[in-house]
Nucleic acid binder design. Structure first.
Length: 393
RNA sequence: GGUGGGGUUCCCGAGUGGCCAAAGGGAACAGACUGUAAAUCUGUCGUCGUACGACUUCGGUGGUUCAAAUCCACCCCCCACCA
């Protein structure tokens, strides 16, 4: 099956050069393509499991290979603080250190500046913050963050950005995108095109103001980044607002470059993103929810801890081919959850990640076969509450 | 047989006259989780009622008191030590 995928890969994007991105199929705004990184080709649209500290929680690389993960995430902030990017560099980089030989994208730490409350100062030079581990003070500059990610041997380096919370006013947001742009340009200067094999992605921001979103994209798009991300969404805003902004922003991003919607989202969010032309996604939901008992199935979302599953001998999802679904009953998975067993985290994570990877694979296939709109309606039908909410009901 | 300690709402366990349907923890039930300080957090948790509230409960029985899980008497059971 892996071999088959590889052949499809070759068939999908013949002659794709290292470091390049290619759109092979389009269906409306949705597109399917390939991104060539230093550690191999990633087929888009893709979901990237989150492995913040160099580990996709509860899941080993073998499992990730089995469920078809093509690229995972690591985090600059966390790995810099512990065990240290230089230590990882001495181990031969994050791939070798973590025994993951496929691509890795590393987030810049911009999100941590946003999400970790407490002492932090954002100024032109960079961000001063305190470690959540020991309270020690650190300074992240755009240049420093690039250096850290190069030490990690990241395949896709994200620039340092400022992610503003929902509710941030217009004047602040307007200034913020200007600084995020300057930071991105400093990042590009610190790591000129052609220096190494790592790709460099810029992050567009703009809060919840369409014109600022457009301005941020315009400022960044004229420069030679390898990809463009949309940051600062799904930070507490109502879903219709996020969807409107997504619909507004994605088409502005350069069509020839990969487009990455950061930190999003639910299956519906992802399919919606794909429909607008997003190529890459990451989110903690499948792994975090797995650990908290919320599982995604072909019938929609279920909470495995519910009493109704206590004597349910059926598989978690009859339509799923993952190890968990092939092997265990809902009753057993519920028991493992209630007993606080470590195996619960692993089996649930395995399943949810399989669901997400299957989802993007199915989306890719639907695009290829020109039936993406139908596919999207099907996914919407699985999450009626969320779809209604997104529609503003 | 003696001496001492104890029996509290599903479990453990606070509570020694009114502010007690009774702290806290656990279990149970339900919900949340979106570039992971998340193996986390929130709610419910005697019965009936949407609620103000009403009713029943602290081993048993009887008593003292305006008022008892709390005081008294007897009884039942458990634990420790001594015989």
């Amino acid at each position: 099956m892996r071999e088959e995928e590889r052949m499809e890969n070759n068939g999908l994007c013949p002659g794709l050069e290292p470091g390049r991105f290619m759109v092979a199929h389009a269906d409306g705004a949705a597109r399917a393509g390939c991104l060539h990184t230093a550690h191999g080709i990633v087929r888009t649209p893709i979901f990237m499991p989150v492995g913040t500290v160099g580990s996709v929680k509860a899941v080993a690389p073998d499992d990730l290979h089995a469920l078809g993960a093509e690229i995972i995430l690591g985090n600059t902030y966390h790995l810099y603080l512990r065990p240290g990017d230089e230590l990882i560099a001495r181990r031969g980089g994050l791939h070798r250190f973590a025994a993951w030989d496929k691509p890795i994208l590393t987030d810049s730490g911009g999100f941590q500046v946003f999400s970790l409350p407490g002492l932090r100062k954002i100024r032109e030079e960079g961000v001063e913050f305190r470690s959540h581990l020991d309270g020690s003070k650190h300074l992240f500059t755009p240049e420093k963050v690039i250096a850290i990610q190069r030490n990690l041997h990241s395949d896709i380096i994200m620039v340092l950005d400022e992610c503003v919370p929902y509710g941030t006013d217009y004047p602040y947001t307007a200034k913020s995108i200007e600084m995020t742009t300057r930071w991105a340009l400093r990042s590009r200067e610190a790591y000129p095109k052609g220096t190494g094999r790592n790709l460099l992605f810029a992050i567009t921001q703009g809060g919840f103001f369409p014109d600022l979103r457009a301005a941020s994209v315009a400022q960044l798009a004229e420069h030679d980044f390898d990809g463009f991300a949309i940051g600062g969404l799904s930070v507490g805003e109502p879903k219709p607002i996020m969807y409107e902004l997504l619909a507004h922003t994605v088409p502005l991003l350069p069509g020839a470059k990969p487009r990455y919607l950061m930190g999003v989202g639910t299956p519906l969010d992802i399919v919606t993103g794909i429909s607008h032309g997003v190529d890459m996604f990451d989110c903690v939901l499948p792994t975090r929810n797995a650990r908290n008992g919320t599982l995604y199935t072909s019938q929609g979302k279920i909470n495995i801890k519910r009493k109704e599953f206590a004597e349910d001998d059926g598989p978690l999802d009859p339509a799923c081919a993952c190890y968990t679904c092939r092997t265990f009953s809902r009753a057993y998975l519920r028991h493992l959850y209630h007993s606080g067993e470590i195996l619960s985290f692993r089996l649930n994570s395995l399943h949810n990640l399989t669901y997400y990877l299957d989802l993007v694979r199915a989306a890719r296939q639907a695009i290829k076969e020109q039936r993406f709109a139908y596919f999207k309606r099907h996914i919407e039908s699985l999450y009626p509450d969320e779809a209604a909410q997104a529609a503003g009901a």
